[in-house]
Design a protein around this nucleic acid. Structure first.
Length: 275
DNA sequence: CGTTTTTGACCTGCGC
DNA sequence: GCGCAGGTCAAAAACG
């Protein structure tokens, strides 16, 4: 297991936290409302540093993604929860590049070089707990699955996804809770440097969603019920969910399971859902 | 034909 | 130092 997990485990994190007012700032810093200037393509750890104000190591923020809809068969009931993860896994700047770039030399060189020389830089992460029948929730972005692993304490495998945008190095990992098979834990890592774009064969994301994506961050608040401060962040990530839901989610989170018409059922704070 | 998913192997980091 | 578990890569297969 990785240390990382413990750090950013839902509600378990304790390294990063921002105040309520800061949330928006932070998020925006991460570029979750970012147009496309963040640093895509740049692929350097620099971007993280910049965003985090120089601390390349401590950074975990989240990258909320706008949830979508159309392809989702039954996402009607989803409890979303998010938490910020921090610390832990360090992500690799170069690595991303290497992997992202197929044109790059065999991963061997790249991977080796990168690992030995320096530590991987961690990227902001956001974990969402969603109650849904489908593992892979649409968030407005296109993801490509690049791996799957069995999880030690869980009968369910963990899937690893990467944004299909060649310049975007955002990753996402999805796994089902061993406690509640109906609960899907989605962790976003990194930040999109582009708007949500099309949907896989299912159609393009609607304009609304794109728009939504661009502004979801700022409007969010954090779930009052969350036990951890980080949760707030997480909460924000929830917003990401769907266009038009922002408002709803926001409310739901902060006050009660409100729900959005069909998209979000009720939000479940990490600490609360445990019961 | 192009893209995505699947799957096994490899590498890295951490705990003991 | 060894073993374990997580995370990623890459080749092959499947799908649209």
């Amino acid at each position: 297991m990785d240390p990382t997990e413990s750090s950013w485990r839902l509600g378990g994190g304790d390294e990063f936290f921002f105040g309520s007012d800061k949330d928006s700032s932070i998020l925006s810093e991460f570029g979750w409302n970012i147009p496309a200037e963040t640093s895509c393509g740049v692929g350097d750890s620099d971007r993280i540093d910049s965003n985090f104000g120089g601390e390349s190591t401590s950074d975990y923020v989240s990258v909320p993604a706008p949830r979508r809809t159309a392809t989702e068969p039954t996402a009607v009931e989803e409890k979303v929860e998010a938490s910020v993860s921090s610390s832990s896994s360090e992500d690799q700047p170069e690595k991303s590049m290497a992997s992202g770039d197929s044109s790059q030399p065999p991963a061997e060189t790249a991977s080796k070089a990168r690992k030995k020389g320096q530590k991987r830089i961690r990227q902001p992460r956001f974990a969402f707990v969603t109650k849904s029948e489908v593992d892979h929730l649409e968030d407005g972005y296109r993801w490509r699955k690049y791996g799957q692993k069995a999880v030690k304490n869980s009968p369910f495998p963990r899937s690893y996804y990467r944004c299909t945008n060649s310049k975007c190095m955002v990753k996402k990992r999805v796994e089902r809770s061993s406690e509640d098979p109906s609960v899907v834990i989605t962790t976003y890592e990194g930040q999109h440097c582009h708007h949500s774009v099309g949907y896989p064969r299912g159609g393009l994301i609607s304009h609304d969603q794109a728009l939504f994506a661009s502004r979801l961050i700022p409007s969010v608040h954090y779930p009052v019920g969350l036990p951890y401060s980080h949760s707030l962040h997480a909460a924000q990530s929830q917003h990401v969910p769907a266009a038009g839901e922002i408002g709803e989610v926001h409310e739901a989170i902060s006050s009660q399971p409100q729900v959005d018409q069909g998209l979000l059922g009720d939000i479940v704070p990490s600490g609360m859902r445990n019961g």
